[in-house]
């Protein structure tokens, strides 16, 4: 069965990032033979004086396909892991959702969108998790991370938010690769412009250092921007500063 796992608020200024912990959890699922994990996505939540966060307020989510017998062991393992690995002073939260059992996915995606625009609290998060039958738990500190953990599940489920953790390793020739060559190397739905056009296989892209993919329309895409004043190449990978809205 398909599940989503999201964690939030596990770090402090000196510790490993929440993304590293999410990656380790995803890898552990595979190591233990519980199932197969997909990529981790980073979801930006509201930055506001009334929201406690370390430095950027983002949560990390991944999808996995596991046998149903392993759901409870996974939740127990992840809970222990967060207690053990979260940084001093952090307020970690864990959310696990079984996608096929979600009666009201739109309520969850709406919560995710709200968490990008409003100050939400633990009571709201626990109430919604209870109503939808999700696992939501806190593992230290104030436990405020449950808000971001639940929101991250909603945003990943919505499929229109977040950058994929890490960068794409794309081999090029003199910094250039066609869309076809790129898609032969990395597992993505496509290469897409900021205007929403999905490019054909023959289009040539100037690939900058550490290109990143984002989630749009439920798929994963390498984003590209138009190159001005160039006869040779029409597109380059989108600069990081323009990706921060994802």
């Amino acid at each position: 069965m398909k599940i989503l796992v999201c964690i939030d608020d596990t770090d402090n200024l000196e510790s490993r990032g929440t993304g590293d912990l999410a990656t380790e959890l995803a890898e552990e699922i595979e190591k233990r033979g519980w199932g197969r994990s997909l990529f981790v996505t980073r979801h930006q939540l509201l930055v506001h004086p009334d929201v406690p966060y370390t430095s950027h307020n983002s949560s990390m989510c991944f999808e996995a396909d596991i046998e149903s017998d392993y759901l409870q062991p996974l939740i127990e393992y992840a809970s222990d892991y967060l207690k053990r690995e979260s940084a001093p002073g952090s307020d970690p939260g864990l959310c696990v959702a079984v996608v096929e059992l979600l009666d009201e996915p739109e309520a969850l995606t709406a919560f995710g969108r709200r968490a990008k625009e409003e100050v939400l609290n633990k009571t709201l998060a626990y109430d919604l998790a209870s109503q939808l039958g999700l696992h939501l738990s806190e593992h230290g500190g104030t436990g405020q991370g449950v808000v971001g953990a639940l929101a991250g599940i909603g945003l990943r489920l919505g499929g229109n938010d977040g950058r994929l953790k890490g960068w794409l390793d794309i081999r090029t020739e003199n910094g250039l690769a066609t869309v076809g060559e790129i898609l032969a190397q990395v597992s993505l739905q496509g290469v897409r412009t900021l205007d929403g056009e999905v490019l054909g296989a023959e289009e040539v892209i100037a690939v900058d250092d550490k290109p990143k993919a984002v989630m749009i329309g439920g798929g994963t895409y390498l984003m590209v921007s138009a190159v001005e004043k160039s006869d040779r190449v029409r597109w380059r990978t989108t600069p990081r500063k323009q990706l921060k809205r994802f």
Binding site: R42, S55, R240, K244
Partner: peptide, 10 residues
């Protein structure tokens, strides 16, 4: 440097 996932500048 922060973890790469949190970079916003090129």
């Amino acid at each position: 440097p922060d973890v790469e996932d949190e970079w916003t500048a090129d």
